[in-house]
Amino acid sequence: MAEPITVNGTPQPIPDDPRVTLLDFLRHDLGLTGTKKGCDHGQCGACTVIVNGIRINSCLTLAAMHEGDSVTTIEGLGTPDEPSPLQRAFLEHDGFQCGYCTPGQICSATALLQELAENWPSDASEKLEGSIAITSEEIRERMSGNLCRCGAYANIVAAIEEIAAGETA
């Protein structure tokens, strides 16, 4: 028997058809439609979820490859009654317009804060070693896997900066 996938804390059985991507599993099989399908080819980031603490594109992985893994989706980060700090900051800074890329942006940003805390370097980092300064350029580079066609980038960066500053303060 295949081990279940744990999604937002609840174990879920692996789907029968191995072709089902993690994205379609979440959206279709589990009805967790907060995770969005924007391109289905890893080119837009709307499907970003956090698997075992790491952000990935759920469209480019099969549900069957995630036996025993723990998946967190936008629904697992917060609710309308209890939004996460990032969700609240996106609302306050108007870090979205149509809202379709937004769950992916927020999942990405949530993981990004952890990556910064662990001092992972990025293409924008001046130095590869040591602590990473949290600049807007660092955030932009690290968020570049999440397209926003409405053009809310400037506000998204402002929202993330606010939370990042709070976490390091």
Partner: peptide, 14 residues
């Protein structure tokens, strides 16, 4: 906005 940032706003296919 809260519906959008929490992934609870339903789009056409959802």
């Amino acid at each position: 906005g809260l519906a959008k940032v929490t992934g609870t706003a339903p789009y056409a296919a959802e």
